[in-house]
Design a protein around this nucleic acid. Structure first.
Lengths: 208, 208, 208, 208
DNA sequence: GATGAATGAGTCTTCATTCAT
DNA sequence: GATGAATGAAGACTCATTCAT
């Protein structure tokens, strides 16, 4: 369906100067993406915005796709680091509290760099390794799946897997939709409360 | 952020010959879109696929965007026609049954032309009138919002609007995710059952 | 230097209906030319402005050049008809009065359809038969040349031809420049007075 | 009436290599203009004639208009340099000699690159900054206006401004017409003599 | 004769990518 | 390593002209 191009960085930067160049290129990519959208993203624009020559850009990235891929990876990385920090704690909490924490976490993930997140979500073609973006969303999936499986007894569910699919879709969607359509609502505690209610009622868990 | 381009068709076809041309252009657009993705969509590719000269394409569509816009509108039209047929019936049903019907309807909407739907959803930049695609999704939104408001007494909710937002996001997301990740699951009645359960439990409605 | 294309009308219109079509096409050409400039002049625009189908346009004019050529010819015709009416009278007048009449005539010629004249002068490439436009300018030339030759005795000139060249260039230029740069000045009698003075002094004729 | 396009060069060449490219592009523009006329002037033709890739052309010139604009500016520059050298000298001469010098100068200006001058004058649409070409013509205007105003006492004129307009139109026109219609005559001293006579007689200055 | 749909050669222009300095 | 000039394939779009109805 699509020409498949190498998206791995050309060479790992060893020296700190090189690292700085790579960073400024990724930063520039993000800025250009936010400013001009995906079709405004040209390698020359990125190089200029990074204060780097076009030649240098190609020193580190074999092509445009690699640039975007690296940015996405970086973005995912940031979101993942948020998740990992919370994972352990959530696992041991009462279901209701766990649900709330997961919801709050999902919101935080959408707030890492909202404008960039939006462009990445809405405009960047989801092809090739770019599908990695989706993986990030699925981290929450696996987490919830694990929680449900572990505490099946407390819950009014019969198919942990299916329920996980439902809940994860739900939480992700509610947060994503809110972020896209009504960004302000993300700060509204009632959204979290109500979503928690949706989860707990479905799971048959009383909230104390 | 984005150049805004006219996306309205250039002229109405008067003779049946030209209507055929327009139809074959839209058909070709869909095919190319599915085959080559959004960046593979070139006006020349569409014209060729339609067996029509590039000049004819531009007689009816001022640019590439207009072509996609028309296709989207057509796609939405098809989905809307599905919805309208169901609207009246659902309104009078018991909540649980209504929920099920809405879920089934959402699934049907995703099955109109799944491959095209996928490309339209994942790759077509959501700009300008293309945002109309989103509107289609929101048709279900308003429907549910209306239902909830009308029967607030039977339900364990305090903010019909917020609940509608949650439910609509949920149903849409579950179906959309299933369609994207596990298309087979759309035929699985357990998905419908479980989603209905999620809805009814949240609303505090007993299923008989 | 340029591809030479046939610019003669395709067929002489015999019936009055045909003549009306040709007229409305020429009228439309002039209007489009004034409205959109020479590069805005497309055969389709002309046909539309004339309320005639593009097919009919090509019934009467073999190509775009022929259209423009015919318009120019028509424009020249109008200007010529002005000149012919004055020719006889001027020939017998005293030099000073003749000069004045010629100058006034030149002004009138520039006022036939000033906007069209301007576009024709400034934007229409002077190629092929379009050079005919220049001929119109030269009608005054020959007139003055004749006058001078006939009355060589009264005048302080030794080379009637050269003097004619000078005077005609002068009168044309003064009027043309005024028309282009300061259209209002065309109505100012002082312009005519002073130009007449220029002519009479050069010719060594006392003004009574 | 006309789309207004940017005609300023895109970037200043920094290396000598790129200056050479710009020069060859302008040279090629002139050659193509003379060879094929203004509508034969395509960016591809210019790039080819310059032995440069089309991409390089667009590095320095945003569009066709910019190319022509730069060429015109260059042409004007050359003509201006001629004028500036003469300016001081002429101002102090006796009127008759000054007139002759101005006429000779005007002729020289038309001989800088006659073929190019002709195309520029006859075919290049006078739009936007292209109107600058006219400014060049007006340099002589202001010069003469200054001369007349300064020496009003010696002259048989009452409105220096109007007289300047007349004379400048006259000299320009005579030279321009000669250049266009009878290029050989430009070398004929009788043309200069007679034109000088026209000027001096009009101004009421005796020629010794 | 009239209509207007169809044609496609020809232009402009962009932008990822290379490579000489 | 860095620079930025050069490249050219590729794509959008126009418009004079033809021809089936």
């Amino acid at each position: 369906m699509h020409r498949q191009v190498r998206t791995t960085p050309r060479k790992r930067p060893r020296q700190s100067r090189s690292q700085a160049t790579v960073d400024s290129l990724l930063g520039a990519t993000a800025r250009v993406l936010v400013r001009d959208g995906f079709d405004g993203l040209t390698t020359n624009a990125v190089a200029t915005a990074a204060g780097v020559s076009i030649g240098s850009l190609y020193q580190y990235f074999p092509n445009k796709e690699a640039l975007v891929a690296a940015l996405i990876e970086q973005h995912i990385e940031k979101m993942n680091s948020l998740v990992l920090a919370e994972l352990a704690a959530v696992a041991t909490l009462p279901i209701a509290q766990a649900a709330r924490r997961v919801i709050e976490l999902t919101i935080k993930m959408h707030c890492v760099d909202p404008k960039l997140h939006r462009v990445l979500t809405e405009q960047v073609p989801r092809v090739g390794r770019l599908a990695k973006l989706r993986e990030a969303d699925e981290i929450c999936h696996r987490m919830v799946a694990g929680l449900l499986a572990a505490r099946k007894d407390e819950l009014a569910i019969h198919d942990a897997d299916l329920s996980a699919f439902l809940l994860v879709s739900t939480i992700e969607a509610v947060v994503h939709r809110a972020a896209m359509l009504y960004p302000d609502r993300l700060d509204d505690p009632r959204l979290i409360d109500e979503t928690t209610l949706l989860v707990t009622r479905y799971l048959g868990v009383a909230v104390h």
